[in-house]
Design a protein around this nucleic acid. Structure first.
Length: 522
RNA sequence: AGCUUAGUAGUUCAACUGGCUAGAACGCUCGACUCAUAUCCGAGAAAUACAGGUUCGAGUCCUGUCUUAGCUACCA
């Protein structure tokens, strides 16, 4: 069976984790857990990108050494991932010595193969915007397209990666791997926007950045942060020979990079080219998701509009945050966060799932003293519901295979709604009143099994709460595996217990408290 | 400024290469039920950005306009 190597981007260590980081990482974690649930072996890496002028500046401003600064930052990310129950196999840091050696080695190799050469970067520079523009961008008037001020031409020495050598090969690769980049439109943009107009050689070194990996052959230069950062995906599996063999060298391993679409370009164009230049295998997929915005603004510290994932997680617990992000955000689209939507979304958990558990457990206690009756199937509705269950499982698996974890989640919740409706249609309380115990047994044994299936399918998302469902149903440990979910009867004679509420409804009083806590004003 | 994406009920998404009455979900209005956490179930109101064009037929294709978003070598 296929293996998977799944990666998040390594996050830039100049600020605390925000909701966008949480989304990407939760996405990858749920994907990893889902793949494992279906029986695949998975290696899942996360990490931090710790070089660059910005970090150095930031550290100095705070009176710290850059190393101390990034040590602290990467700890913050680790803490966040722990809070969110991110079950990663590797936390890679670009200041890791092994990684530094790797980068130097690859840089040297490309230099000696003439894939990298020393040249001069020349560009139009706008002093006020602190940014470079190309000829076509500044136009004939030589003005900054942003602020309309006059730009200056400046030159500096730089190493360049010879993109032209690999353009043809890259396009061939795209053609043979139509699904390399999802959503597909991203790849069109890459081709039309960068490759067709003529891909320029990429500057891969800097002379004005001290906090970076030195170019051995010319110590005036440090390696450009993106060159450094991309090779983390190699370093993360390269530290251990077994892992390296199993998840990098093995062709049965599918390598999936999950990124925000703002950095898709580096992963779809330059990263494969670098690997080609080093004669190494290529990743199989780049999944480019949309960005989270608040009131249509990009999240940033300076605008004071970022929602603190630490506070949210402390208040609601990781399961709720995980469910919110994965069920609410359609993959690939930008998402406009609002507190109201957040509350609406997470209330689905108590209303639909929590309530379902509660009503089934209560009925089992009232009608059967808590013992799940022997499985039987007496009427047409039961049989129909079995079909729905099987097709829900099938759709779920298909969606996981296609990497649609949001769709997979909604498949399960559609089934939850079906089960709620089934209860209303059958009205077990009427069967009880009319002494139709045989039929009641049939219905209740189905209901218990359906809840068991639901808990198992949601286990990659609700990593804690799904256990509460299984515990309240009294499911034996040995049956907590996906291979048993389509086998009716394994819950026969399990004894249910009424426990704590699974989820609490967020009401108006809670909302007021939260607004104070999170500093939200309308 | 250029390239690219997207404009569908109040909101977030569907509708395969143009093809039955444009589907859901949340919210809203009304109704029913009592196993349940004022939860769950049913019914209803409500939409193709604008202007042209191609076609037997357009949300889908073409042209123009407007709007949103992303990128365009030192912020990752």
């Amino acid at each position: 069976m296929k293996n998977f190597y799944i990666t998040t981007p390594i996050y830039y260590a100049n600020g605390a984790p925000h909701l966008g980081h949480a989304y990407t990482t939760i996405f990858c974690d749920i994907l990893s857990r889902s793949k494992r649930l279906l029986g695949h072996e998975v290696f899942f890496s996360v990490g931090t990108d710790e070089h660059g002028k910005k970090i150095e500046k930031n550290a100095i401003k705070n009176g710290l050494t850059p190393q101390f600064f990034v040590d602290n930052m990467s700890e913050q990310f680790k803490k966040m991932w722990k809070m969110l129950d991110i079950d990663y196999d590797m936390f890679i840091r670009t200041t890791n010595q092994r990684h530094i050696n790797n980068v130097k080695q690859f840089f040297s190799k490309m230099l000696s193969n003439n894939d990298i050469y020393l040249g001069e970067y020349e560009g139009w520079y706008c002093i006020d915007c602190e940014s470079f523009w190309s000829d076509s961008q500044v136009g004939e008037k030589k003005i900054c397209p942003d602020c309309l001020r006059t730009v200056k031409k400046i030159k500096e020495e730089s190493y360049f990666f010879k993109c032209s050598r690999y353009v043809e090969k890259l396009l061939n690769f795209y053609n043979q791997n139509m699904d390399f980049c999802l959503p597909k439109v991203q790849l069109n943009e890459m081709i039309n926007n960068f490759i067709t107009p003529g891909l320029k050689d990429l500057s891969v070194s800097r002379t004005n950045d001290n906090w970076g990996i030195r170019v051995e052959e010319n110590t005036k230069h440090t390696v450009y942060v993106w060159f450094d950062a991309l090779f983390n995906y190699f370093s993360a599996v390269n530290f251990d020979n077994e892992v390296y063999k199993k998840f990098w060298l093995n062709n049965d391993t599918e390598i999936i990079h999950v990124v925000g679409k703002d950095i898709a370009r580096f992963h779809c164009i330059y990263w494969p080219m670098f690997l080609m230049a080093c004669d190494m295998r290529l990743p199989n997929r780049v999944l480019a998701h949309g960005l989270i915005k608040i009131k249509n603004e990009k999240m940033s510290k300076s605008k004071h509009n970022s929602i603190d994932p630490v506070l949210l997680t402390q208040y609601f617990g990781s399961d709720v945050i995980r469910y919110f992000l994965i069920s609410e955000i359609p993959f690939g689209n930008n998402y406009d966060y609002s507190f109201e939507r957040f509350i609406e979304r997470i209330n689905i958990l108590p209303h639909q799932l929590g309530n379902l558990l509660n009503r089934v457990i209560s009925m089992l206690l009232q009608y059967f003293d808590g013992a799940i009756p022997t499985f039987s199937s007496l009427n047409l509705e039961d049989a129909k519901m079995q079909d729905k269950m099987f097709s829900a499982i099938k759709d779920y698996k298909k969606n996981i295979d296609n990497l649609n974890i949001t769709e997979a989640t909604s498949t399960v919740f559609l089934f939850v709604a079906d089960v709620n409706k089934y209860i209303d249609d059958i009205a077990p309380w009427k069967l009880y009143k009319n002494n139709k115990f045989k039929e009641l047994e049939s219905v209740m044994s189905h209901l218990a099994h359906f809840l068991y299936v639901i808990a198992m399918l949601l286990s990659p998302i609700l990593v804690n709460k799904h256990k509460i469902i299984l515990n309240q149903l009294g499911v034996l440990d040995k049956f907590r595996k996906l291979e048993f979910i389509d086998k009716f009867g394994i819950l026969n004679n399990c004894v249910v217990v009424k426990g704590e509420l699974l989820f609490k409804t967020i009401d108006d009083k809670d909302i007021d408290n939260l607004k104070t806590l999170l500093n939200i004003d309308d």
